[in-house]
Simulated assay, not measured.
Amino acid sequence: MTDNTYQDAAASANGTEGELGPDPSLLIVDDDVPFLKRLARAMETRGFNVDTASSVAEGISKSKSNPPKYAVIDLRLGDGNGLDVIESIRQRRNDTKIVVLTGYGNIATAVTAVKLGALDYLAKPADADDVFNSLTQRPGEKAEIPENPMSADRVRWEHIQRVYENCERNVSETARRLNMHRRTLQRILAKRAPK
């Protein structure tokens, strides 16, 4: 039995071939290793053939050697930006369905990810069902509106985080751009994200 025949048989047994198609290859790139392992296991149970990477360099290397049909990529990685992995995949395969994950919302980065060919943009912690639904949505389908949208405090926090990242994590410059006292900004940055 060849690898492809085995993959087809496994997908048919799981009842996922109709949703995933004949190529269920999935690359997950995330530097949060416990999350990466959990998501990989969850996606395997849903019929994907999962490969993982925990850095931009590893993600690019794996996308060059075996471009996947599906990809889940974290934007903020220890050694760079997940957008580089998306570009690497797109250079080799233009039919890959890509979902982008991030720990904080950033509209500008989301727009860039979509322009590079990302299918969806999910805030972490996204669960396996959200990721699966995003990867398997049909063209033109719209994602459901969340029952619990972000609170005003969370939106404010996300905006501060975006400006902070755009200022290359320079507290003084961020405080100046936000017209905020530096110590106030430091207190906000030291706290956890509001729900």
Rank of each mutant, 00 (worst) to 15 (best):
P125F: 06
P125N: 04
F35P: 02
R182N: 13
V163W: 00
V131Y: 03
A123I: 15
Y164V: 02
P149W: 07
S151K: 14
E19N: 11
E44I: 05
L119R: 15
D31L: 05
M1V: 14
A126R: 00
A40I: 11
R93P: 01
F132Y: 15
L75G: 00
I145P: 07
N166Q: 14
V114T: 12
T96Q: 01
L77Y: 03
P68Y: 01
K195Q: 08
L135W: 00
L185N: 09
V99K: 01
D129H: 13
T112F: 07
A57I: 07
G78T: 09
K97Q: 11
E141M: 13
T136K: 08
R46A: 12
T136H: 13
A143W: 05
A143K: 10
S25D: 10
S151V: 15
G59S: 05
I73M: 04
R93M: 05
E19V: 08
S134H: 04
E173D: 14
I107Y: 04
D30T: 03
Y121G: 05
F48D: 00
A42F: 12
T109G: 01
I86T: 06
M43A: 09
R156Y: 12
T52F: 13
S65G: 10
T112R: 08
G59E: 07
A110F: 08
L135T: 00
A143E: 15
G78A: 13
V111S: 06
V131F: 09
T184G: 09
H181N: 15
V99L: 05
T52Q: 14
P125H: 10
R90Q: 12
K62N: 05
R76P: 00
C167E: 04
D120W: 05
